[in-house]
Computed example of a mutant assay.
Amino acid sequence: MNRNALAIALSLVLAAPLAASLPHAAVAGSKAAMSTGDVVDGAMASADHETLVAAVKAAGLVDTLKGRGPFTVFAPTDAAFEALPAGTVDTLLQPQNKAKLGSVLTYHVVPGKVDATTLAGQIQAGNGSARLTTVEGEALVARLDGSTVTLTDAQGNTARVTAADVMQSNGVIHVIDTVLMP
Rank of each mutant, 00 (worst) to 15 (best):
Y107A: 05
A130D: 02
G112L: 08
G112D: 05
P111K: 08
Q122C: 01
T133F: 05
K100R: 09
G128L: 03
S103F: 08
G102S: 07
R131L: 13
Q122S: 11
L119S: 06
A120E: 01
H108Y: 10
N127M: 05
P95N: 13
T117H: 11
I123C: 07
V104L: 06
S129F: 12
A99F: 12
A116C: 07
Q96E: 14
K113H: 12
G126W: 03
V104F: 05
V114T: 11
Y107R: 04
Q96M: 06
P95W: 11
A99W: 14
Q122D: 08
L132M: 08
K100V: 03
V109Y: 02
L101P: 15
A125P: 15
G121K: 06
V109N: 01
G121F: 02
K98N: 05
Y107E: 01
A99N: 14
Q124K: 14
P111Q: 15
N127H: 09
T134A: 04
G126A: 07
S129A: 11
N97M: 09
Q124H: 13
A130T: 08
D115I: 03
R131E: 15
I123P: 05
T117G: 15
A116S: 14
P111Y: 06
H108V: 04
R131C: 06
T133V: 12
G112S: 03
A125R: 10
L101E: 10
V114M: 00
G121M: 06
V110K: 00
P111E: 08
A120V: 04
L105E: 03
L119G: 00
G102D: 11
T106I: 10
V110H: 04
L105V: 08
V110A: 02
A120H: 02
L119M: 11
G121Q: 08
T106P: 02
T118C: 12
V114I: 14
A116T: 02
G126S: 07
T134E: 12
G112H: 05
A99T: 13
Y107C: 05
A99K: 15
L132G: 01
T118P: 12
S103A: 15
N127Q: 12
V114N: 01
A125D: 15
G128D: 07
L101H: 12
Q122P: 04
S129I: 00
V104S: 03
G128Q: 06
T106Q: 08
K98L: 09
V104D: 03
Y107Q: 01
A125S: 13
V110S: 05
N127G: 02
A99C: 13
N97S: 09
G126I: 01
A99L: 14
L105Q: 09
R131P: 15
A130Y: 03
I123F: 06
H108E: 05
Q96R: 11
D115R: 07
A125N: 11
P95K: 10
L101F: 13
Y107M: 02
L132F: 03
L105D: 13
T133W: 09
G128K: 07
P95C: 10
P111N: 11
T134H: 04
T117F: 10
G112M: 06
G126V: 01
G121C: 09
S103W: 05
S103P: 00
S129Y: 04
V114K: 01
A130E: 05
S129M: 12
A130W: 01
Y107T: 02
K113R: 13
A116P: 10
V114P: 01
V104G: 02
Q122N: 08
R131V: 14
L132Y: 06
A99M: 12
L132I: 00
Q96Y: 04
A120K: 10
